[in-house]
Computed example of a mutant assay.
Amino acid sequence: MLRIENLRKSFVLDKGEVRAVQNVSIEIAEGQFFTLLGPSGSGKSTTLRCIAGLEHPEDGEIHIGNECVFSAKRHILVPPEQRPIGMVFQSYAIWPHMDVFHNVAFPLLYGARGKKYSKVEVEKGVNEALAQVQMAGFAGRPATQLSGGQQQRVALARALVRKPKLLLLDEPLSNLDAKLREEMRVELKEVARNVGITTFFVTHDQTEALALSDKIGVIMSGELVEMGTPYQMYVRPKNKTVAEFLGTANSLKGKVVRTGDKGAVETELGAISVDLSKNDVNSNDTVYVVIRPEGLVCSHQRGAFGENCFEGTIKRSLFLGSFIDGEVTIKGKNFRALLSPHEVFQPGERVYVHVPADRCQVTR
């Protein structure tokens, strides 16, 4: 539904040229919720602004549905107001001198040139959009009397009122407090699913990306590093930098000593058994073994632990209710671990640390 091919955008500043987006290619299916995730300055918002027509790329193509809205080679540049999009900005951009109705109606009253809506059509469109975001009955409310969450809903209703093919969201939750942000994550996903709209979401927040997305793309320094489902990106990342950016990760550098489903990587802790049947690696390749904190199993007894079992010492133990945020030292190297609250772990105590092979991921 959305297809971006070899998109490139640069800015010329006093300090020289900044390559904000470098040959980015993305394809999103109809109705899919896609998140472009990256740190500040990575090029994620510039990519979204290029899709919206607010920035003019130097190269590449952008297709929305069956329509090409930008092509450098074919000299196509469809103006923003003529693209089949709705957009929610980080600041919401709510008009303070208007009530809710006129804020939502704005695209219908002053949007695409040549398109006129009757009063009845405007009222129907606004009421439908407000109902979709659970703001029915708020049409007459002045914008200055809205909470942060209500402003976000109004901005979303305004983006949906023209029934666009593509919804663009530029970090719309970043201005909300933690509790409201969590509530709005759930609501935003439900609205997108109920409307059935294809969504392009930009954020630096890993939790938002994992919670909302059907598919995630990680962008860094203008380059799309990796794409996949939330599960693939978190549990089975192919890139060490992506693994560390998407959450806390313990990593061990090593060399492949055996390939296949009974593979092994020699590390500073010793040989770690891991399934390498789906990895494109050869013997003697330098790789990283990545283990999430929740993947480590710590116990006072060695028990039935076989392979990948190491002796360690509890360095830190912070009780947080449903789990213990711990740190374990193994052969002089510290590992973050989420420990069971049903066992008592004290700093300085010796433990056995098991690293199940199926919880290890090998990256470059």
Rank of each mutant, 00 (worst) to 15 (best):
D14W: 05
A155D: 08
V218A: 11
M220Y: 09
N6I: 07
C50Q: 07
I51Y: 04
K262A: 13
D280C: 15
G247T: 03
F335P: 04
H63T: 12
L108N: 07
E121N: 05
T248S: 15
V351Y: 03
H97R: 08
I28N: 01
K333R: 10
A155V: 08
K189E: 06
G140W: 10
G114N: 04
G16N: 06
C298Q: 01
P96G: 13
D325K: 10
P237W: 06
R153N: 00
Q301P: 02
T46E: 00
R49P: 06
G303Y: 07
L37T: 05
G321Y: 09
K262I: 06
L13K: 09
A337F: 09
G125S: 11
L168V: 04
G31F: 03
F245S: 05
E183K: 13
S277H: 15
A337V: 14
E55M: 05
G43H: 04
I76D: 00
K278G: 12
L54F: 12
S317L: 12
R162F: 01
K119D: 14
S317W: 08
V344E: 13
H300N: 14
E190F: 03
N127W: 02
A159F: 05
T241D: 14
P39K: 05
A192L: 00
N23D: 13
Q152C: 02
K15P: 08
M87N: 02
A131S: 13
E27W: 04
V120N: 10
Q22K: 15
Q151T: 01
R316Y: 11
G41P: 08
G125A: 07
R141A: 07
T203C: 09
F11C: 10
F245C: 02
F33Q: 02
S118Y: 04
N279L: 12
V353E: 02
A112E: 15
D14S: 13
V122W: 03
M220C: 14
R316E: 14
R181V: 02
S283T: 10
K333I: 13
V344W: 11
S40A: 09
K333L: 15
E327Q: 12
P142A: 11
A304M: 14
K44E: 06
T329H: 11
Y92G: 04
A157C: 07
I76H: 08
T47L: 09
N282T: 15
S299I: 09
K163S: 13
T203E: 08
V290D: 06
S174K: 05
G60S: 04
K73F: 11
V328K: 01
N66E: 14
N6F: 09
D275T: 03
P84I: 03
A105W: 03
A264G: 08
H56L: 15
V344R: 12
M184S: 06
V274P: 02
L2Q: 10
V256I: 14
G295V: 07
V355F: 10
A211Q: 14
R193G: 04
L48N: 07
S273R: 13
S45D: 00
A131R: 03
E343W: 07
S273W: 10
D170R: 02
D177Y: 08
L252I: 10
C309P: 05
E58A: 11
G312P: 09
K189C: 02
T47C: 10
N194A: 12
G31N: 10
L130I: 05
R49C: 07
M233L: 14
E171D: 05
V328A: 11
V78K: 06
T286M: 12
